[in-house]
Nucleic acid binder design. Structure first.
Lengths: 232, 232
DNA sequence: GGAATAGTCAAACGAGTATTTGATTAGCTC
DNA sequence: GAGCTAATCAAATACTCGTTTGACTATTCC
């Protein structure tokens, strides 16, 4: 219903505080609008700093609201984080639709991973925070697993069609693609050192996306062209 | 006088406490041994939980020492973390020597990444915590960058030798290899969903390492065998 | 064997922060 | 427009840890 434009305009100042007073003819109080602002701010902050280092005061300031509203609307900081997770999966499915060429999916994934609006780093945070014990079997986990399995089947289909050497395990390929696609977001320090830049520029993102797509596209089809030193 | 031994050893409930009393002929007090115990415990805890979620009380308990000793020997929790970083780079260089076949390096990297002793997750933690602003230009960063650049040169050398299509950017390939090599450690939740297992077994690690190495080995040499949809 | 020192510890302290409390007011309904 | 409820806020609270303090003791050196 709401959340049309995440942020129509933004001050280019350091720790920005998005517009404080609503437009002339807007309502002064609007629960949905406020919630949306908090969520937008929360995605950025959680994605950038992770759950523990994220400050509810920071999120509230960016959203331009009182920090108590986070408890009011989402129960707690963790409740807000969970809500983010739900919205994120929905957005993900939309931004990277299935059925695309695997290489094209990869490219989109790379671009999305470094977009602060998107919060691709959340995936890595979740994985690192994951202890393998606590949150098993919940709804969100099941949903995500189903999504992953769907992608596995899609790749397997291509193997049957002869587009990909069937000695590759689709599950492994997907994990490789996802992790490598997130690399700029997860290892910015390595990226800077490797590419010799001070910052992750849009050009670098495109370059890396291109390279990763090329690697994926180079995988041999049904008949592997050369495997000179495979010792088994 | 206070109580003599508050708790010489602890019930083996859940949070384990490694050996409390030294062997019969060992010294009761040994700074180096204590420091080493703390460091070993710290690697595991920091790697598993990240800096913020790691508890000095937990590290001390695992090391079987009083938690004040962490401040005493390393100044602070952060000081301990820095020391971990130093040792880690040294260990890394030893566990994954240069000069190996790239695919073999990858395999070793995968195995190391899931070894709690090694703490491959630390690399991801560092990257996620990295804000691109604070810790630039310090000694450790420079050293790591030099190491990365060395690997870039090595790959470029192979391109000159015709072993690898020179349309691949060595820096990008290394980032792909590193990030994909760490995938099991960084995205255990995805791995479980993809491979349909409850845990990351050693067999799964070997399987994934094998697969990733195969992908790397499949990269075309000087003449790309098939690039059907590369549009440049 | 008797200081001196380094190693170790338990308990108290204090900084940082999420959450609760209690008050204020916009916006809707009749 | 009176009254009610939802939305908002500032300030106080409560709690979780990392660090400091001060005391105790094994080890070493003369």
């Amino acid at each position: 219903m709401t959340s049309q434009h995440p942020s129509p305009d933004r001050e280019p100042a350091g720790r920005q505080r998005t517009r404080r007073s609503p437009a002339p003819h807007e309502r002064l109080r609007d629960a949905e609008r406020t919630k949306a602002r908090i969520l937008d701010a929360a995605v950025e902050v959680f994605s950038a700093k992770g759950f523990d280092r994220a400050r509810v005061a920071d999120i509230a300031a960016r959203a331009g609201v009182n920090q108590q509203l986070i408890s009011y609307y989402f129960g707690s900081k963790r409740g807000l984080y969970r809500e983010i997770g739900r919205r994120w999966r929905a957005y993900e499915a939309e931004a990277i639709p299935e059925g695309l060429e695997f290489a094209e999916q990869i490219k989109r994934g790379v671009r999305a991973s470094v977009d602060p609006r998107f919060g691709g780093r959340l995936l890595a945070w979740d994985g690192l925070y994951d202890t393998g014990e606590d949150d098993e079997g919940d709804e969100e986990t099941r949903e995500r697993n189903a999504q992953l399995q769907r992608e596995v089947r899609a790749l397997r289909e291509r193997q049957r069609a002869g587009e990909l050497d069937d000695r590759f395990d689709p599950a492994a390929l997907i994990l490789i693609g996802l992790s490598a696609g997130n690399a700029l977001a997860v290892y910015p320090h390595l990226a800077r050192g490797l590419f010799g830049t001070d910052t992750i520029s849009p050009e670098l993102v495109e370059h890396y996306a291109e390279q990763l797509a090329r690697v994926i596209s180079s995988l041999p089809a049904a008949a592997p062209p050369r495997v000179p030193d495979s010792s088994e």
